[in-house]
């Protein structure tokens, strides 16, 4: 079994309960603005996100919360793992460091906990914690050199 399939299986086993109701997309998108504000204040941001890619980072945060809103409504563990791997591979290809996710994801957890209903927050926080707990496994899978070698 390859790493991607292993990760899919591990997420399927740990899958938190899906929420019965999901907040509006506007509420999710408001978290993107808050995340941008927090990340802009991160020390040594230039070391983890190339300065010329700041706009890409901000746009990524909008797409990120769009995606998490979608995930709360339609969840497939396979799709989640593949999308996380795709996003990490893509943004690392554009110079984002792995440390970016280590700093960004805890902010996402706090924002969910402070802005979303409990059941929805628990579901999404469970997914964020899963990513944080598997960054070591995701590292080789999403390294830019993997993409250079033609692995998708």
């Amino acid at each position: 079994m390859d790493t991607l399939e292993f990760l899919k299986d591990s997420l399927a086993l740990d899958r938190p309960a899906a929420p019965e109701a999901v907040s509006s997309q506007d509420i999710h998108l408001s978290m993107a603005a808050a995340l941008n504000e927090r990340m802009e204040k991160e020390p040594d941001l230039d070391l983890i996100v190339p300065f010329e890619k700041r706009g890409m980072m901000r746009e990524n945060h909008i797409n990120h919360f769009r995606y998490m809103h979608s995930v709360a409504r339609v969840f497939s563990h396979g799709d989640f793992v593949e999308t996380v791997a795709w996003a990490m591979r893509t943004y690392r290809g554009h110079g984002f460091a792995l440390e970016y996710w280590r700093r960004m994801l805890p902010h996402c957890i706090e924002l969910c906990q402070s802005r979303l209903p409990l059941q929805e927050s628990r579901f999404l926080v469970g997914l964020y914690e899963w990513i944080l707990g598997n960054i070591q496994e995701l590292d080789p899978l999403t390294a830019p050199e993997q993409m250079q070698a033609g692995e998708q």
Binding site: N63, R66, Y67, H69, S70, V71, R73, V74, D79, T83
Partner: peptide, 10 residues
């Protein structure tokens, strides 16, 4: 194409 639109498909 983009995963965040899956909920819109639903």
């Amino acid at each position: 194409t983009t995963s965040y639109n899956v909920q819109a498909v639903k």
